[in-house]
Simulated scan of single mutants.
Amino acid sequence: MRNAVIAAGLIASSLHVIAAQPPFTTVAECDLAGPDSRLSLLRGHPLSDSHVYKISQKHETRFLYADADASNGSRVDWQCVSIGNDVNVLLITGEFSSNYQQGILFFRDTSDRRIHRVEFAERNRPSWVFSGSKSPRVIFENVGHESVHKYLIYGPSDAYLETDELPVPATGESLIELKPYP
């Protein structure tokens, strides 16, 4: 009987802790290509200077990364970046599970009409987004000197390129400089 009382007390206190967690709140929204592709960035479960982040589209909400631990980030910043013709990308960067800045670029692919993501990790935040005939790419200045090249470019399907020149936009393409980070 005593064990049942202790177990009931533990369950009640656990439920109280779970109920005491503040709800996730929307901190950013971005229409990638119209309202049917609107993404919402949600933040909740504060701990010291970090929060757990989720991404939501329509009625589906999931952690930004694999689980709550991997999605717990600090110094997180986001930008809804216009890449032209009422098309945007959502760029999220912050300190998540490594000593590097990690981030994700969300975009809607025009051919399959699905939302895709480009993940990256670097010592600094990205400086540009390149939008062209292929899917958007994220461009970093190589401040960590992991490479002899000046710029590091991340694209879909784990595409990665090191180069000494920024891409030169052709007709219909654009190189968008990102706003400064706080």
Results as ranks from 00 to 15, higher is better:
residue 68 A to D: 06
residue 118 V to L: 01
residue 64 L to S: 04
residue 105 L to V: 03
residue 97 S to N: 12
residue 47 L to F: 15
residue 42 L to F: 07
residue 77 D to I: 00
residue 98 S to T: 12
residue 119 E to R: 11
residue 111 S to G: 13
residue 52 V to F: 07
residue 102 Q to W: 00
residue 91 L to G: 10
residue 82 S to R: 09
residue 122 E to I: 00
residue 99 N to E: 05
residue 70 A to S: 14
residue 87 V to W: 12
residue 51 H to M: 06
residue 52 V to R: 14
residue 48 S to W: 05
residue 53 Y to Q: 03
residue 114 R to M: 14
residue 48 S to R: 15
residue 84 G to S: 09
residue 61 T to I: 10
residue 86 D to R: 15
residue 107 F to I: 02
residue 83 I to M: 07
residue 53 Y to H: 12
residue 43 R to N: 03
residue 108 R to G: 11
residue 91 L to F: 05
residue 111 S to D: 14
residue 85 N to S: 14
residue 98 S to E: 00
residue 59 H to L: 12
residue 67 D to H: 08
residue 93 T to C: 08
residue 105 L to E: 03
residue 37 S to Y: 15
residue 50 S to H: 10
residue 69 D to E: 15
residue 82 S to I: 07
residue 100 Y to C: 00
residue 122 E to V: 01
residue 99 N to Q: 07
residue 107 F to G: 04
residue 79 Q to T: 08
residue 73 G to A: 03
residue 46 P to R: 10
residue 58 K to Q: 15
residue 69 D to H: 13
residue 61 T to Q: 14
residue 54 K to F: 02
residue 50 S to N: 04
residue 92 I to S: 02
residue 93 T to Y: 00
residue 117 R to V: 05
residue 47 L to G: 14
residue 92 I to M: 01
residue 94 G to D: 01
residue 107 F to D: 08
residue 117 R to Y: 06
residue 107 F to A: 04
residue 115 I to G: 09
residue 121 A to M: 06
residue 38 R to A: 13
residue 87 V to F: 12
residue 42 L to S: 13
residue 65 Y to L: 05
residue 39 L to R: 14
residue 80 C to A: 08
residue 74 S to Y: 02
residue 50 S to T: 12
residue 114 R to V: 04
residue 78 W to R: 03
residue 84 G to Q: 08
residue 110 T to Y: 06
residue 92 I to W: 00
residue 51 H to C: 10
residue 90 L to M: 15
residue 88 N to W: 04
residue 77 D to S: 03
residue 91 L to H: 09
residue 114 R to F: 06
residue 111 S to A: 13
residue 82 S to W: 04
residue 101 Q to D: 05
residue 71 S to H: 03
residue 78 W to P: 00
residue 37 S to Q: 10
residue 68 A to I: 03
residue 84 G to P: 10
residue 67 D to V: 06
residue 114 R to I: 02
residue 117 R to S: 15
residue 110 T to L: 14
residue 83 I to V: 15
residue 80 C to Q: 04
residue 73 G to S: 08
residue 50 S to A: 15
residue 39 L to P: 11
residue 43 R to K: 15
residue 45 H to M: 11
residue 102 Q to Y: 00
residue 98 S to I: 01
residue 79 Q to I: 00
residue 66 A to S: 14
residue 84 G to T: 07
residue 59 H to F: 12
residue 67 D to P: 09
residue 52 V to Y: 04
residue 120 F to G: 07
residue 102 Q to G: 04
residue 60 E to C: 02
residue 47 L to T: 12
residue 58 K to F: 07
residue 115 I to Y: 01
residue 90 L to R: 12
residue 70 A to F: 03
residue 49 D to L: 08
residue 119 E to L: 02
residue 81 V to S: 05
residue 57 Q to T: 15
residue 60 E to V: 11
residue 116 H to A: 09
residue 65 Y to T: 08
residue 95 E to D: 12
residue 63 F to S: 09
residue 55 I to S: 00
residue 100 Y to E: 01
residue 66 A to H: 07
residue 48 S to F: 11
residue 49 D to A: 12
residue 38 R to V: 01
residue 87 V to D: 06
residue 115 I to M: 11
residue 79 Q to N: 11
residue 43 R to D: 07
residue 121 A to L: 01
residue 38 R to F: 09
residue 56 S to N: 14
residue 78 W to F: 08
residue 94 G to R: 00
residue 116 H to F: 08
residue 121 A to R: 09
residue 109 D to M: 02
residue 83 I to E: 03
residue 120 F to E: 05
residue 44 G to R: 07
residue 58 K to V: 13
